[in-house]
């Protein structure tokens, strides 16, 4: 930012306009924030209403708090998998945690490795891989779902959560997470590694002992965001892992199929929603400070 900026004269009018605009936008922003709060509040209120009360009072304060909706969730939120296996809330909670933790950890780990290697080492093909990542990110491949289904089915990855998780980092050198980590590694000088080498360490120690700890806050942010994403992911389960439903997929079924099967009422569905968001809210509140400070996205330089 070397070039200096010369403003010919102070445009007073613009100053005023700018102040007014900011004031207006602040009001807009606050109204927007309030609008975001309406739905969760409505969800919680509705979760305490029975269906008759909802028909008469769809937004107001519940007249009688109807706690049975919550026990109804535990009773009715279940999915029958092929062949006599019925999963209840606790099973789904297990699958949710397993999947979110597993896929987030493995993805963050491999993305970190890739970002580190590509940002710190020049070797045959390193530029190619980096550019390939950019290409994968910006070149859309449209309509390969049927083909993906065929391949995954043939390899046994379809409907197998373990294989699904361990094969998930297939494009870990692409995407915003990669770029974020890549940028973070770039900003760390190589001198740290030299110091490790002088102390008799090798590339492994440089990475695991020196750079990894330094990058941990950024990696944690990515982990948390990725965890939130996979916790709430129902489409993956709908398409690839229908037999190991997580909570999000369970709820998807709950509000669709189970409305018929278990006659779930709107109150019970809202109670289900209220319950399923607890873990993510807790996790987010715990790591909020870190996310707010560390989440940046850089350019697509190739």
């Amino acid at each position: 930012m070397e070039k200096s900026i010369k403003i010919k004269q102070k445009p007073r009018v613009l100053d005023v306009v700018s102040k007014v605009l900011i004031a207006i936008m602040l009001v807009v922003l606050i109204v927007y924030c309030i609008s975001l709060l309406i739905l969760p509040v409505w969800m919680i209120l509705t979760s305490f209403k029975n269906s008759i009360e909802y028909v008469n009072n769809s937004f107001g304060w519940p007249e009688n708090f109807y706690f049975l909706n919550y026990s109804g969730v535990f009773e009715k939120l279940q999915i029958r998998i092929t062949d006599f296996v019925i999963y209840n809330v606790f099973h789904m909670l297990g699958f949710s945690t397993l999947y979110s933790l597993g896929s987030s950890l493995i993805n963050v780990f491999f993305t970190t490795c890739m970002a580190y290697v590509l940002s710190k080492y020049k070797f045959f093909g390193s530029n190619f891989i980096y550019n390939l990542g950019i290409v994968v990110m910006i070149v859309p491949i449209i309509g390969s779902l049927p083909s993906a289904m065929m391949v995954r089915d043939a390899l046994g990855v379809y409907n197998n959560m373990f294989l699904h998780i361990i094969t998930s980092p297939s494009t870990c050198f692409s995407g915003t997470n990669f770029l974020l980590l890549y940028g973070a590694f770039k900003s760390l000088p190589w001198d740290y590694a030299e110091a490790v080498f002088i102390d008799g360490g090798n590339d492994f120690t440089a990475f695991f002992k020196m750079f990894l700890p330094m990058i941990l806050p950024t990696a944690t942010v990515i982990f948390v965001l990725s965890f939130l994403g996979s916790w709430n992911d129902y489409q993956t389960f709908m398409i690839w892992l229908p037999d190991t439903p997580n909570l999000a997929y369970g709820l998807y079924q709950f509000q669709g199929v189970s409305r018929q099967l278990y006659k779930a009422t709107i109150g019970e569905i809202m109670a289900g929603f209220s319950l399923v968001i607890i873990p993510t809210v807790v996790l987010y509140s715990a790591s909020q400070g870190l996310i707010l400070s560390k989440f940046t996205v850089g350019g697509l330089k190739g």
């Binding site: 099973h91 297990g94 699958f95 933790l101 190991t244």
Partner: peptide, 25 residues
């Protein structure tokens, strides 16, 4: 954050034990 991570890990173990009880037919 790590405290919460630990709680989630415990839950996972619990969850996966429960989940593995499904019958295999």
């Amino acid at each position: 954050f790590f405290k919460i991570l630990a709680i989630i890990l415990t839950l996972t173990l619990f969850g996966s034990t429960v989940a593995s009880c499904g019958e295999d037919q």
